[in-house]
Structures are given as structure tokens and as C-alpha cells.
Design a protein around this nucleic acid. Structure first.
Lengths: 339, 339
DNA sequence: TTCTATAGACGAAACGTTTCGCCTTTATAC
DNA sequence: GTATAAAGGCGAAACGTTTCGTCTATAGAA
């Protein structure tokens, strides 16, 4: 069907090696170059990547694995990763695990079959056992957003300083007089949730406030989950003056629930949310949020991986962890209250 | 590095062809099968997909191209497509074009290089010119959600009956006494927006209502865009009794804007939104929405493509268009008003 | 026992590249 | 005019599979 390198060698009267050299950016005589280009255009030639990869043992492809595609935070990272890698000639295969640990292992095996040159993983399972076959084959891996303790020495990681982000946001509320602060987090099985919870506890603790269990609500990370939990929270704990929601979806759920309850923000309840600067600014009052450097996370992860994939210095270096900081972006959803 | 079929042939004392047969599901003697499996486990053998694909001329991979990853509607479809194809042994490469037509052509070329066996496209550009090289190579394509007129005879399509969905939703409002109905749509360059606009017009027209231009607001499909437009709309057209928002993000933006304005729903303004059944039901009052059969769209698209990729009957059949219907899911966000 | 049918095993060739070591041409210096 | 260096071109082998046509061994029928 498609033309091969031989066809274009025949057509131009040149040798195979010359065509190959041209295709890979080598120097050939100008007239030959012209001839080759003409032949390529006429025959609609296209390199057979299978053959190339078979020979070079590189697929120029990396796999990106995330728990779900329906999540703005994750897809924002993926978008940036994809962009960065593309600029270096790599393609990206995105897979989601539907939050199921078994699927994670399956998907990683699939990527192994596809012979990806590297993997970026936003872990679904706690221990990411599915990575073992990948690591065994010495394929570089970068973990993103969620730490896996057992791999700390083995793979690069790009993390947010979740503890600090939560600590500082809670302090932000405390400094403005709030003492009864509700917290919405995702499953405690997830690294980021645990860290954020700890950061909140630490700040409250330091302020001498003992936190009733009931102020802390775990959800499934979704808008509707947070909506429900916020309603219950406000029902059961009418004394709360602020709520801290720790991802974007939950923030939306909380905002909607408070509004549907007719609860003024920040008049009656103050809010600190998470992510999506654009929306936070568009709203009235503008939301005060913790803004994660999603794009930076994507770029850093891609760059770490790129370095490891260069056979030169890759394997040698020690595993590296990049810890990024979130920023508090002030809106007007937090009111100063009397102590 | 990795073991090859030869290694396992040597280890078992069997021939290459036998190993190959086993790998591809053929029958071999039980004792040989045992021996092969043992060798595979011991050598940690894994099929080299490059070599396999080079020989079979199949990558067992399909490309899915969408305008952006940060969009729930699109990623829901992708998730379903991926699931369906995976069950048939196909992997999926997801690419987003960042809504840029040039990127669409680039991405399709990239997929061509990766030698995908098929393509599912949610078109970014109006004419999807980037598909031409793909079609030229006789790679099957399925268009999803957005129609491209010039390709109607050439590729399969899975579409929503957008006209009907908008017509019926508008009628739903009209039947409940609303006559001054605002409409939020995306760019008019996009097929779905145009159709939804036409459906709205048709219903209004039939009801004898002439629609001022000002009732119709085009946005960039985003939450924040719709938020802004809703505020302006309510400012300039205080007589409106209902708003129809035509995608999920815009629905959220509208809801938020109305609430921030202190506008009662449905007391002062009724709303019909789009998509995300879960959230719509969680809210109070529950939102009345047009619910698109996203999962069905994904499955249908995947199945159409699977059929075409089977060399047997694929090329022969005529291009097929599947038109799906949306459902109106009643909540309590639409009030009956006096005519 | 001999013949035939059948299941299963087998080796070689082919898929389309890249790369190695070698060869040819051209330009430059003497 | 010859010698030398540099630039560029060249074919063959190799990458790891699948597949085709052929061969062998076993079982059942006569």
C-alpha cells in the first residue's frame, strides 16, 4: 500500500542509507535533497514507525495514567504534559483507571505492551503495585500529585506541598477571627487528602482549637458529594463561620449548597476553595482560593521524564522530588469576624 | 535486553512458528503449552509489538481527537469509547487540539505517523481539513457530536439531534407560560450551537414570538463566560422569565450568576440547563436539564469504528449517521407562569 | 500389517527501517 | 599532475515478529 524507503530510493536513484540519513536530519547534497523531497511528495511516502521503532527500540511515546478523565485538575496537568512532550517529539497515550486500582495495573501493562519510553502516573492505588513490572524493565517513571512512599527512592515525583497549603489557608481563616471552621476533603486513602487534613489540624491545633470530628467531612471528591455534605454540615453544625473545601469540584458543590440554603457568602459563612482561578475571579463575590500550579506541575513532570529518557545521564542520577507551593488568591469570600 | 521469541524457542526446544501460534491463541500440545508458559515466565518475555505490527500492519490502536480535555461532556464520551475499544483489544491515544484548527491537522498527522487503525474525531475546525490525509490512506473515521457537511457521504457519524433537543426544551418552557426566554449558546461556528439556536428559534417562531437579538448570548462555552453573559442579560433584559443554557459549563455559570445576583430560581427566573444528571439532581431545587446520552454516543462511535476496522466488510458499506435523542429530565427549576 | 487422515511442529522469507564499515567523488595543496 | 582529506553515498545485516507450505508422528480403518 504505502510507499517505502526503497521506492523512493529507486525513484531518486539514491541508496537506502542516503534516504534514511535525510529522514533523520542528516546532510545530503542539495540536489539530492530536492529529489528526495519530490519523490516523497509524489509517492506520498510516510515513515513506517513500526519498522523504525523496531530498529531503534524507541517508541517516542509516553504513557500518562490518571484516575479519571472527568476531572479538571487532572486534565489540566495532562494538557500541559502533552504539550511539553510534543515539543520534544514525543507522543502521549492518556489512560484513565476509572479510580479502580485493578485497572491501574491493567493499564500499565497495556502501556508496557505498547512499549512506551516513559510513564507519568497520578496514582489511583495506594501502593501503585502496578508499577513494578514497569520499573523492572527500567522504564522511567514520574509520579505526580500523589506520593507513594515505597517508591520515594526509586522514581521522580512532582508534588504539591499539600500540608503547607492547607496549613496556610487555615491560618488565613484563623487570622481573620474564624475559629469554627468546617473542612471538606476527599477520601482519606488519598495522599493529598491526608496531607491537607494534617495541615488543617496543625493550624487549628496551634491556635488551641480542638476540632470535633463532625467538622470534617470526607466525600468522593465530587461536586454532588460536597453539595450533600455541606448541607448536612450546616444542618448539624450551625455555629460554623467558615468552610474550607479542598478541591475544585468540592468547592463548587459547597458554593452551590450554601447558595441554595440561602446562606450569605461571606455574610454568614466564609469560604476558601480550591483551584480554577478564572471562575473564582468571575464570581461575585470573587472566591478566595488555594491555587495549585497545575501547569507548572505538568511541565516539571514532563521535564523530569525527558531527562530520564535520555540514555546519556538518565539512569545514573538519584530520584528527585519536586515540591511545589500553592498560592492563596484572595477574593472576597472570607469575612473578618469578631473573635 | 528483553527476551525474544527465539529465546523461548531455544529454551523449550520448540520452533518459532509454534511459539507464535501459541501467542496468537492457536492450539499446541498441552505439555508444550506448559513449557512455553514456564519459559515465558522465567524469561519475563513480552511480545515486541513493533515487530508484530510491522508484520501484521495493524497497530491495534485508535486515535481519539477532541477540542479540549477540560470538558466533562467530551471526556465522558472518551471514557466510554476507551472502555469499549479496550474490550476489543484496542488501545486509545487521546489528543486534544486546544480548540485550535491548526493543531487539529497536526494531531491527525501525528496519529497517522503512529499508524492508528482508526480515528474518532470531535471536530475542532469547521471543515476538518486535517482529515484528508487520513481518509486518503483509507483509515476509517467516525465523527462524533459535530457534523461536517462535506464528509457526510464519506465517514460515519454519531450525532445528537440538537435541533430537536432545543426545540423540545423551548417548547417545555413555552407550555409553562414562558414567552420571554433567554438563550445561552456557544460559538455559532460550532455545529451544535447552530442547531440548538435553530431549534430554539423554530419553537419561538411557532409560538408567534419574535425574538430580539439581545436575548441570545454567545459565549466561549465556559462557566465564567456564561456567568458574565448571564449577569449582563439580566441587567439589560429585566423582563426575561426563563433562561436556557445549552451546555454543562454554561449551565453552572448561569446558576451561579443568578444566585449571586440574588435572583430566585425558579421564583423569579426559570432555568433549563444541560447535562450532568448527578449534579442536577443533587441541587435544590433540582435542575431541569436536557440530558445527552453521552455514554451511548461513546459506545456507538466505538462500535461503528470497530465494524469498519474489520477488513472483511468494512470498506464496502455506506457511511452511516446515527442520530441520538436527548431526554428532558425534570427537576424543579422551571415554574409555571401566567401567560 | 499397511494405508490414510489429521493434528501439530517446523524453517525460511518477509515486513521497512537504521547503522556499520567501506567506497566514490570532489576540492585542495603541493 | 599527483597526493591527500573531506564529504557524501552505498549495500548488507539486523531488529523480532507472522505466515506459508511442508514435514512428521500418531491414531484409526481396512
Amino acid at each position: 500500500m504505502g510507499a517505502t524507503i526503497k521506492d523512493i530510493a529507486a525513484k531518486t536513484g539514491l541508496g537506502l542509507a542516503t534516504i534514511s540519513k535525510y529522514l533523520n536530519g542528516g546532510h545530503v547534497l542539495e540536489k539530492n535533497q530536492a529529489a528526495i523531497e519530490k519523490a516523497i511528495a509524489e509517492l506520498d511516502f510516510q515513515v513506517n514507525e513500526f519498522a523504525r521503532s523496531l530498529k531503534t527500540r524507541q517508541s517516542k511515546t509516553v504513557g500518562v495514567v490518571i484516575p479519571q478523565l472527568n476531572n479538571l485538575f487532572m486534565t489540566s496537568i495532562v494538557t500541559k504534559v502533552e504539550e511539553t512532550l510534543r515539543h520534544h517529539g514525543y507522543g502521549v497515550i492518556v489512560c484513565d483507571t476509572s479510580k479502580q486500582p485493578e485497572r491501574e495495573a491493567e493499564v500499565l501493562q497495556f502501556l508496557l505492551n505498547k512499549m512506551v519510553d516513559g510513564v507519568i502516573l497520578l496514582a489511583t492505588s495506594k501502593e501503585a503495585e502496578g508499577l513494578d513490572p514497569v520499573l523492572k524493565r527500567n522504564i522511567p517513571v514520574v509520579l505526580i500529585d500523589r506520593k507513594v512512599d515505597r517508591l520515594e527512592e526509586k522514581t521522580d515525583m512532582v508534588l504539591l506541598d499539600n500540608f503547607r497549603a492547607a496549613y496556610e489557608s487555615t491560618r488565613y481563616l484563623l487570622e481573620r477571627g474564624h475559629r469554627r471552621i468546617g473542612l471538606l476533603i476527599g477520601s482519606e486513602d488519598v495522599y493529598t487528602s491526608r496531607e491537607r487534613l494534617l495541615g488543617y489540624y496543625a493550624a487549628m491545633d496551634k491556635a488551641g482549637i480542638s476540632v470535633p470530628k463532625n467538622w470534617i467531612r470526607c466525600t468522593d471528591f465530587t461536586m454532588q458529594g460536597a453539595y450533600q455534605q455541606t448541607l448536612e454540615l450546616m444542618e448539624e453544625e450551625s455555629g460554623l463561620t467558615a468552610i474550607f473545601a479542598t478541591n475544585f469540584e468540592m468547592t463548587l458543590g459547597t458554593v452551590l449548597a450554601l447558595k441554595d440554603k440561602g446562606c450569605q457568602v461571606p455574610g454568614e459563612v466564609s469560604i476558601i476553595g480550591f483551584d480554577n482561578r478564572e471562575l473564582a475571579r468571575a464570581m461575585q463575590p470573587a472566591l478566595t482560593i488555594v491555587s495549585q500550579p497545575v501547569e507548572e506541575m505538568g511541565v516539571e513532570a514532563a521535564n523530569l521524564l525527558l531527562r530520564r529518557m535520555q540514555p546519556s545521564d538518565g539512569a545514573a542520577e538519584e530520584a528527585q522530588t519536586i515540591l511545589l507551593r500553592a498560592a492563596i488568591e484572595e477574593g472576597a469570600s472570607v469575612k473578618r469576624v469578631a473573635d
